[in-house]
């Protein structure tokens, strides 16, 4: 066999091996990616207009609620399983340091969220909950699903956008230091 004819056999084998290895790397990478469930995106948006929503728990959420204090705005739904996962963390950690305002959306009836709160004994976690009728706020804040939460500073501007569940680890390592920082600032 000459050099050339040998290579004719070897070349496709090499190509196939390279493709196979790249696929393996790709799949491993895919697995690693899925472990990260939160994505932090910094945005500086003004608090939007709260005129298209209806109150559910306590009175309507207004612009004035977010002034002169650090607060959190979360998007919920009784249909959202991940929200129930988040609830104990909100109860034990988040609600003890900052007030939480909830926005409910895509519900079949507005009573669903009240039932959901009763089942999980979570009526006292949220200072206010309102219902977004036409997803106007959802689109205005770039929300794709639930749970997604925003941390707002004393001026009422969004500092942090958390996509997905706020875990205990994430809260203690990343968000709580930020909140303490914001509380200290004027």
């Amino acid at each position: 066999m000459t050099y050339k004819s040998k290579f004719k056999i070897i070349l496709p084998v090499i190509v196939i091996i390279i493709i196979f290895i790249s696929l393996l790397i790709f799949m491993n990478h895919h697995d690693k990616q899925e472990k990260i469930t939160t994505k932090l995106v910094y945005k500086t948006l003004d608090t939007p207009n709260f005129s298209t929503i209806t109150p559910i728990v306590n009175d309507l959420i207004r612009d004035q609620d977010f002034h002169n204090k650090v607060s959190m705005l979360t998007f919920l739904g009784s249909w959202c399983v991940a929200c129930t996962v988040e609830l104990p963390i909100l109860k034990d950690y988040v609600s003890k340091s900052i007030p939480i305002y909830g926005l409910d959306f895509d519900e079949q009836s507005q009573l669903d969220i009240l039932r959901w709160l009763k089942i999980h004994q979570a009526e006292n976690i949220f200072t206010k909950i309102s219902y977004d009728n036409r997803d106007t706020l959802v689109i205005d804040l770039g929300v794709t699903g639930a749970p997604e939460s925003f941390i707002l500073n004393k001026q009422g501007k969004i500092v942090l956008h958390v996509v997905g569940i706020i875990s205990k680890e994430l809260w203690l390592t990343k968000i709580l230091p930020l909140v303490n920082n914001l509380k200290g600032a004027d």
Partner: peptide
């Protein structure tokens, strides 16, 4: 093989970049 290898390397780079991961934040569950 050089060209094939370089294209594969770029593919891996592409996967690592955030173009792809923007979906995964939604489907990460």
């Amino acid at each position: 093989p050089m060209i094939i290898f370089s294209s594969v390397v770029f593919l891996i780079l592409f996967v690592k970049l955030e173009v792809y991961t923007s979906y995964k934040s939604i489907n990460s569950f």
